[in-house]
Simulated assay, not measured.
Amino acid sequence: MLTGINKVFTFVDDRVKARDFWVKKMGFILYRDFGDCPGQDWVEILAPDQRAGIVVAPRPEGMPSTAGQLSYLAFWCEDVREKRAELEARGVKFVDEIVEESWGLSTTFEDDEGTQFNLSERKEIVTDFAA
Protein backbone atom coordinates (compact mmCIF):
# COMPACT_ATOMS: atom_id res chain seq x y z
CA MET A 1 0.00 0.00 0.00
CA LEU A 2 1.21 3.49 -0.80
CA THR A 3 1.70 5.78 2.17
CA GLY A 4 1.83 9.22 0.58
CA ILE A 5 3.49 11.53 -1.88
CA ASN A 6 7.26 11.62 -1.50
CA LYS A 7 8.26 14.50 -3.78
CA VAL A 8 7.32 16.42 -6.89
CA PHE A 9 9.60 18.20 -9.34
CA THR A 10 9.76 21.76 -10.55
CA PHE A 11 12.32 22.85 -13.13
CA VAL A 12 14.09 26.20 -12.93
CA ASP A 13 16.76 28.25 -14.66
CA ASP A 14 18.56 29.33 -11.46
CA ARG A 15 18.76 26.73 -8.69
CA VAL A 16 20.16 29.12 -6.07
CA LYS A 17 17.55 31.80 -6.75
CA ALA A 18 14.80 29.14 -6.61
CA ARG A 19 16.18 27.64 -3.39
CA ASP A 20 16.18 31.05 -1.74
CA PHE A 21 12.61 31.72 -2.92
CA TRP A 22 11.21 28.48 -1.50
CA VAL A 23 13.16 28.60 1.75
CA LYS A 24 13.35 32.32 2.58
CA LYS A 25 10.10 33.61 1.10
CA MET A 26 7.80 30.57 1.25
CA GLY A 27 9.08 29.13 4.54
CA PHE A 28 9.94 25.65 3.28
CA ILE A 29 12.71 23.57 4.86
CA LEU A 30 15.97 22.99 3.01
CA TYR A 31 16.45 19.22 3.11
CA ARG A 32 19.33 18.68 0.68
CA ASP A 33 21.38 20.89 -1.59
CA PHE A 34 23.38 18.93 -4.15
CA GLY A 35 24.88 22.03 -5.77
CA ASP A 36 28.45 20.96 -4.97
CA CYS A 37 28.05 17.38 -6.22
CA PRO A 38 29.22 16.81 -9.81
CA GLY A 39 26.28 15.98 -12.05
CA GLN A 40 23.75 16.50 -9.25
CA ASP A 41 22.71 20.13 -9.36
CA TRP A 42 19.37 20.06 -7.56
CA VAL A 43 17.82 21.05 -4.26
CA GLU A 44 15.28 19.17 -2.18
CA ILE A 45 12.98 21.18 0.04
CA LEU A 46 10.25 20.01 2.38
CA ALA A 47 6.82 21.50 2.91
CA PRO A 48 6.44 22.94 6.42
CA ASP A 49 4.45 19.85 7.51
CA GLN A 50 7.36 17.70 6.21
CA ARG A 51 5.00 15.26 4.50
CA ALA A 52 6.11 15.96 0.92
CA GLY A 53 9.03 17.59 -0.77
CA ILE A 54 9.85 19.48 -3.92
CA VAL A 55 12.90 18.73 -6.02
CA VAL A 56 14.05 22.00 -7.55
CA ALA A 57 16.11 20.94 -10.56
CA PRO A 58 17.71 22.63 -13.56
CA ARG A 59 15.42 22.87 -16.56
CA PRO A 60 16.46 20.17 -19.03
CA GLU A 61 17.88 21.38 -22.33
CA GLY A 62 15.06 22.11 -24.75
CA MET A 63 12.37 22.38 -22.06
CA PRO A 64 10.57 25.70 -22.49
CA SER A 65 10.34 28.25 -19.71
CA THR A 66 7.22 28.12 -17.56
CA ALA A 67 7.27 31.85 -16.77
CA GLY A 68 3.77 33.26 -16.88
CA GLN A 69 2.17 29.81 -16.84
CA LEU A 70 0.25 28.07 -14.08
CA SER A 71 2.21 25.04 -12.88
CA TYR A 72 0.76 21.68 -11.97
CA LEU A 73 1.75 22.20 -8.35
CA ALA A 74 -0.77 23.60 -5.87
CA PHE A 75 -0.53 24.37 -2.16
CA TRP A 76 -3.06 24.67 0.63
CA CYS A 77 -3.26 26.45 3.94
CA GLU A 78 -5.81 26.97 6.71
CA ASP A 79 -6.45 30.67 5.97
CA VAL A 80 -5.69 32.05 2.49
CA ARG A 81 -6.12 35.71 3.46
CA GLU A 82 -3.72 35.41 6.39
CA LYS A 83 -1.16 33.36 4.42
CA ARG A 84 -1.29 35.72 1.45
CA ALA A 85 -0.63 38.74 3.70
CA GLU A 86 2.29 36.90 5.34
CA LEU A 87 3.81 35.88 1.99
CA GLU A 88 3.36 39.33 0.44
CA ALA A 89 5.24 40.77 3.44
CA ARG A 90 8.09 38.38 2.56
CA GLY A 91 8.13 39.61 -1.04
CA VAL A 92 6.02 36.95 -2.78
CA LYS A 93 4.12 38.33 -5.78
CA PHE A 94 0.46 37.38 -6.24
CA VAL A 95 -0.98 37.64 -9.75
CA ASP A 96 -4.71 37.67 -8.98
CA GLU A 97 -7.23 38.42 -6.28
CA ILE A 98 -8.54 35.89 -3.79
CA VAL A 99 -11.53 34.10 -5.32
CA GLU A 100 -14.18 32.01 -3.59
CA GLU A 101 -14.38 28.61 -5.29
CA SER A 102 -16.62 25.66 -4.43
CA TRP A 103 -13.74 24.09 -2.47
CA GLY A 104 -12.71 27.25 -0.63
CA LEU A 105 -10.74 30.43 -1.21
CA SER A 106 -8.07 30.40 -3.90
CA THR A 107 -5.36 32.69 -5.28
CA THR A 108 -2.23 32.46 -7.44
CA PHE A 109 1.36 33.45 -6.66
CA GLU A 110 4.50 33.24 -8.74
CA ASP A 111 8.08 32.30 -7.98
CA ASP A 112 11.01 34.57 -8.82
CA GLU A 113 11.18 33.13 -12.36
CA GLY A 114 7.50 33.85 -13.04
CA THR A 115 6.08 30.32 -12.77
CA GLN A 116 2.65 30.47 -11.15
CA PHE A 117 1.30 28.28 -8.35
CA ASN A 118 -2.13 27.93 -6.78
CA LEU A 119 -2.73 28.55 -3.08
CA SER A 120 -6.10 27.55 -1.65
CA GLU A 121 -7.79 26.58 1.54
CA ARG A 122 -9.92 23.51 2.08
CA LYS A 123 -13.44 23.73 3.42
CA GLU A 124 -13.30 20.11 4.53
CA ILE A 125 -11.20 17.04 3.96
CA VAL A 126 -13.10 14.05 2.61
CA THR A 127 -12.09 10.83 4.31
CA ASP A 128 -15.16 8.69 3.61
CA PHE A 129 -15.25 7.99 -0.11
CA ALA A 130 -18.15 5.52 0.20
CA ALA A 131 -20.61 8.36 0.87
Rank of each mutant, 00 (worst) to 15 (best):
E110R: 00
L70D: 01
V95F: 02
F28L: 06
P58T: 10
A18Y: 01
D79C: 02
G53F: 13
V95K: 00
L30V: 15
R51P: 00
K123W: 01
A57C: 14
D49N: 15
A131H: 12
D111T: 04
T66G: 15
Q50S: 14
I45M: 08
K24E: 15
F34Y: 15
F117M: 03
D128M: 08
E86P: 04
D49F: 05
K83G: 01
F11C: 13
V12I: 03
L87K: 01
F28R: 00
V8L: 13
E113W: 07
K7Y: 15
V43M: 09
V43A: 06
Q116T: 06
L105K: 06
G114T: 02
D49G: 12
R19T: 12
E124W: 05
A57L: 08
E113K: 09
G114D: 02
E110P: 04
G104I: 04
G27C: 11
I54W: 02
P60S: 00
E113C: 10
K17Q: 14
V95C: 06
E97F: 03
R81A: 10
L119K: 00
R90H: 15
G39Y: 09
S71V: 02
R32C: 08
L2Q: 10
M26G: 06
W76I: 04
L105H: 09
P38E: 07
D36R: 11
E97C: 03
V80F: 01
E86T: 12
A130N: 14
D36F: 12
M63W: 04
E121M: 07
I125A: 05
D96W: 01
P38K: 00
G62D: 07
N6M: 11
Q69H: 11
A57T: 14
G68N: 04
K7R: 13
M63D: 03
E44K: 10
T3H: 01
Q116M: 10
C77Y: 00
K25N: 07
A47C: 15
K83Y: 03
G68Q: 04
W103F: 15
M1T: 02
Y31M: 09
I29E: 08
Q69C: 09
D41N: 15
G62N: 12
E97G: 12
N6V: 13
G27V: 10
A47M: 15
S71E: 05
V80D: 02
P60C: 07
L30I: 13
V99F: 03
L46K: 11
L87Y: 00
G35Y: 05
E88H: 05
E113Y: 07
L105D: 06
F21W: 05
I45A: 08
V8E: 00
R59Y: 10
V12C: 02
I29F: 10
P64T: 05
D20P: 11
V23Y: 04
Q69M: 13
L46S: 10
T66R: 04
E86Q: 13
R90E: 13
I5M: 15
L119C: 02
N6S: 13
K17I: 09
R84C: 10
G114L: 08
T108N: 06
G68S: 03
